[in-house]
Amino acid sequence: MNGTPASHHVIPARISPVRISSSAAELDAIRPLLSEAQAAIGDVPALLDLAKTVAATAPKPGEGRTAFLWEILASVAAVDVAAGRVLEPHLDAAAILAQAAGLAADEGRDCPDFAGIHFDGAWGVFAAEAPGLRLEAKETGGCFELRGAKPWCSLAAHLDHAVLTAHVGDSGRAAFAVDLHADGVSFSDPAWTSRGLREIPSGTVHFDGVQAVPLGGSGWYFQRPGFAWGGMGVAACWLGGGVAVARSFAASLQKAADGGREPDQIALAHLGEIDRTLTALTGYLARTAARIDAGELSDGGAWREALRVRGGVATAVERIQALVSQNLGPAPLAFDEAYGKRMADLALYIRQHHAMRDDAQLGTLLLAGNTPW
């Protein structure tokens, strides 16, 4: 180890909000939520109840307080990465439903289907695909029915509703709202063996003639700027996990120094690098949130920015994990439950980022337009 105490336990990350741009007074409003999240760690029903409570007052992206929304997500993930993983899709579903309703209003449609959607219960968002599995939506008598299977449906058996994507003939994929308690919905055993996010298994859900409410049209789900905004909200959760790792590292170094063991130059250099990284990240997210709220990222440029944000956060957080792990050595991974859980949860969660494939997509978009530099 490099200047850190030879202890089996890492000092816990302090329970405090993650600041992106809000004032101290605004962030104080998050503190009771963080205490509740800490008390609910590992308790999925309690975390889902907490998500429902948060959704009642949390801002939606693009409505003027996007940075504060990301601070909520980051702060909860800093308490427990899995708690952030539960909260994020529920808030994303609320935003998607609001955006779909707004689209219908802009088009002058009464949209009676929306009258049947009540944002109560716990919601998920399922948009992943997998080889050999396909979910199709077919229009029958003016209604849509879902048939097939949807993979990677996190906590599906614990949820009440979901926003999901399904193939609509040859027109691509469209989004739908569906009742997960409806007849014709069944859940495969996830066979979840992961050491990360152990309380959040992701399995396959099967649909056999299940009615669903269309949200937007074919392609709308992926083309709307809210898709990019939601992707950046996921990155805010990754950031929160990285902040928690960094806080516990700094606290361990301080405890060692207080005990007479000053950290060496390598440990200090790593702490300095982590500080530079997090300061740059939070500053970038603050500017990006302000641009979203100003209407500057409401077109095709939103996804380019999301790729930058997600790639920058994922790379930085993985670097922070590597630096802290090198300094603290194997002991906390082997003996400290909170530290080991955080590292495993974060490692799996970040794999929602597709690394170089996402960078290749960003490069393609840049060649098709103007580079900002």
Rank of each mutant, 00 (worst) to 15 (best):
A251R: 13
D28Y: 07
R304V: 14
G124D: 10
D275L: 08
A58R: 02
D106Q: 04
D275T: 11
N327Y: 11
G141V: 15
L146V: 14
R147C: 12
A368R: 14
G124A: 09
A77F: 00
A51N: 06
R261W: 11
Y221H: 01
I350V: 07
D183C: 06
S325I: 13
H90M: 07
A347E: 03
L164N: 02
V205L: 07
S186H: 04
S16E: 12
W123S: 06
I20K: 09
E199F: 12
H161E: 07
A24R: 11
L27Q: 09
A137Q: 11
D183K: 10
L27T: 07
L215F: 09
R308P: 08
R261S: 15
P214I: 11
L73Q: 01
L87G: 09
N327I: 15
V79R: 05
R247M: 15
L164Y: 04
A290I: 00
A302Y: 00
V178E: 11
S188H: 07
V18Q: 12
L87N: 02
G226I: 15
G64D: 08
F249N: 02
G226T: 14
G259P: 06
Q361C: 14
I200R: 00
A101I: 01
H353A: 05
L135Q: 06
V178I: 15
I20N: 09
A246K: 11
P330V: 15
L135V: 06
I30Q: 02
Q352G: 15
R85P: 02
E145I: 12
G132D: 05
A286M: 01
T288I: 12
D43L: 06
G121P: 05
R308F: 08
P32Y: 05
P263R: 05
A269I: 04
A294R: 03
V317N: 14
T140H: 09
L180F: 12
R224E: 04
A55D: 03
A175N: 06
F68H: 08
